[in-house]
Design a binder for these strands. Structure first.
Length: 552
RNA sequence: GGGCCCGUGGCCUAGUAUGGAUAAGGCACCGUCCUUCUAAGUCGGUGAUCGUGGGUUCGAAUCCCACCGGGCCCGCCA
């Protein structure tokens, strides 16, 4: 949980002790600028047959000892509260000076599994799939920040029809080529075309699946080798984006170690048979667990995987494409209702990314890979940083361009609500101004520059905050609430959008409030604001995959 | 046919879970500001019946119903 002086809660509790009918939702921040927090007294007024002025004066008397409130006024059916900037600043500073982060957390021992990416090892990761990794990694970072012990998980589908058909394709058409992701992709796409021309080839795939599940050594070795090559290059792409996977679980291992069989045994009473194929059903829907030749299906392997996760984690989170919604529902049904596991299980869905020319398919070959996007983003950033900072040595230019590019790519994808469809456009993806990562990074660099130039001047965290400083302090204070909502709602985009607001507020401060040239009192107080701002931006930026730079 | 998601200025989005005050940004376009801490920035302007129609409510972008448009799913694929 987050540790900070929660004035919203404090005010709400106080108001509830005066008027027990007040609900938590009746006290909320105001978006229109009338107040920092407002009590919506509409129901109170109707029920109690009192005037808003009476409500306000009763509250004013009761809260007269509370120094975190500057003013209490009324407007329509609202009681408006202006909070004391100094107290908010103190709440931020005491944590930053104590633990170097606002808000601090109390370490919660719960273990969380975040499964993301888990893309079939049949080719390079494309920009549709990378949305999964980017959302997943941000959720990993946010929950870790929140205090959970989080592990990232990748479920390697090395037993499915698609991977096995890649294997068969490689044996038939790619044997003489070196074992690289490019050659494997070519073999996979060729296999796809050949099967379309001659569906009888499917029989070879069936046979290979049987051999694989039976544990035939050379098949196993070959498939492991092929998958490892592709996984290796997927991993390189993820690394470029700063994304790390902790655990890889191979589907074939769950088959060979007997976990899948155990699932079938546990479900024995529920299993039904159709020509040798086993299934469970719910509401007239059949969910098949095995084929009629006894080989397993993705569904049963995924149940085994979730059973494993239930054994090892307190909270399971899967990041899945929207086409897996029904599958996820079935997993939940079997895990919860049939296997009676009561652990916390959440799914985060995202809609697919399409190109202006239509949807992407690895087999069809019409994809933009994440590597291509990164390469072009780096090229673009390099061009810009070269014109802005011609005096810098090449190594610095490259370092800045890399940070800008990876941050921009991640931010462009993570800032969008995950269930919104996304049509990929180069111009938007490569845009480095406006609502983008560089916009945030730039403000951070400005703050860093001020602090650098300030040298060892005293920093003073209290004082009288002017109307130019207050909005920034208040916006910084909000961070704790945003972090809570993002973690609790599994919504990294909330952090992304908050960062944009925070940065805009800082830019306003920056243009209107001289820091280094201000008189000594203003200067030391403003330096404290800048220091806190820099600290919070760095903290929040990391959560959405932005690598801030001290200079750019 | 059934189920789920999306629809907010010309374009891209925030706000929707938990209804609340003049709907908040970006891109593009027009104009402004570098002898003040980094102009990847700032300020101002043009531009929105929040898909449509009903309903609930003191109050609806937000909740309910219907419809329209787009996406996804309804395999012994994954």
């Amino acid at each position: 949980m987050l540790l900070f002086e929660d004035y919203r809660k404090r005010l709400t509790e106080s108001l509830k002790s005066i008027y027990p009918d007040i609900k938590d939702n009746d006290v909320a921040p105001d978006k229109t600028g009338h107040a920092d927090l407002a009590l919506r007294a509409f129901s109170l007024l109707r029920k109690g047959d009192v005037k808003i002025e009476d409500v306000a004066s009763r509250i004013t008397v009761a809260l007269s000892g509370e120094d975190y409130i500057d003013s209490i006024t009324t407007s329509g059916g609202y009681v408006n509260f202006i909070l004391n900037t100094g107290k908010l600043m103190e709440a931020i500073s005491s944590e930053i000076y104590g633990t170097d982060r606002y808000p601090d957390v109390f370490q919660d021992p719960e273990r969380v599994s975040v499964e993301h990416t888990s893309t079939n090892p049949t080719g390079p990761i494309h920009i549709g799939r990378i949305r999964n990794s980017i959302i997943g990694d941000s959720i990993f970072r946010i929950l870790s920040r929140y205090g959970y012990r989080v592990t990232t998980q990748y479920f390697v589908n090395d037993s499915g029809r698609q991977v096995v058909s890649l294997y068969v394709g490689y044996r038939k058409f790619g044997q003489n080529d070196s074992l690289t992701t490019e050659n494997l992709l070519k073999a996979y796409q060729r296999m796809h075309r050949e099967v379309e021309a001659d569906p009888s080839l499917e029989k070879e795939v069936d046979e290979a699946i049987r051999q694989y599940e039976a544990g035939k050594p050379e098949v196993m070795d070959d498939i492991r080798k092929i998958c490892s090559v592709i996984l290796g290059s997927i991993n390189e792409t993820l690394e470029r984006l700063g994304i790390r996977i902790d655990d890889y679980t191979w589907e074939s291992d769950l088959i060979r170690n007997g976990d899948v069989d155990k699932i079938l045994e546990s479900l024995e009473d529920e299993l039904e048979d159709e020509g040798g194929a086993k299934y469970v059903s719910s509401g007239g829907r059949k969910m098949f667990l095995t084929r009629n030749d006894g080989t397993s299906l993705y569904f049963s392997r995924d149940i085994a995987y979730h059973q494993y996760k239930m054994d090892n984690f307190d909270w399971i989170i899967d990041i899945l494409g929207e086409n897996h919604k029904e599958h996820a529902g079935h997993i939940r049904y079997v895990i919860k209702d049939l296997l009676h596991r009561d652990g916390r299980l959440d799914f985060v869905f995202y809609s697919y990314v399409s190109l202006e020319s239509g949807k992407m398919t690895t087999r069809g070959g019409n994809i933009v890979t994440a590597d291509e996007l990164l390469d072009r983003a780096i090229e673009e950033s390099l061009k810009i940083v070269r014109t802005k900072r011609p005096e810098l040595p090449e190594s610095d230019l490259m370092r800045i361009a890399l940070a800008v590019a990876t941050s921009a790519v991640r931010f462009h994808i993570v800032k969008l609500n995950s269930n919104k469809q996304m049509v990929f456009k180069w111009a938007e993806a490569l845009s480095l101004e406006g609502d983008s990562a560089p916009f945030i990074m730039y403000s951070y660099a400005r703050a860093a520059s001020i602090l650098r130039k300030a040298g060892s001047t005293e920093i003073k965290t209290e004082g009288n905050f002017s109307h130019l400083e207050s909005p920034l302090v208040k916006k910084m204070y909000e961070y704790a609430y945003v972090l809570h909502d993002a973690a609790f709602g599994l919504k990294p985009e909330a952090i992304a959008n908050y960062l944009l607001e925070l940065t805009r507020t800082f830019n306003d401060f920056y243009t209107n409030c001289p820091v280094l040239n201000a008189d000594i009192n203003d200067r030391s107080r403003r330096l404290a604001i800048v220091k806190n701002f820099k600290n919070i931006v760095k903290d929040a930026a990391y959560l959405v995959g932005i690598n801030v730079l001290e200079e750019m």
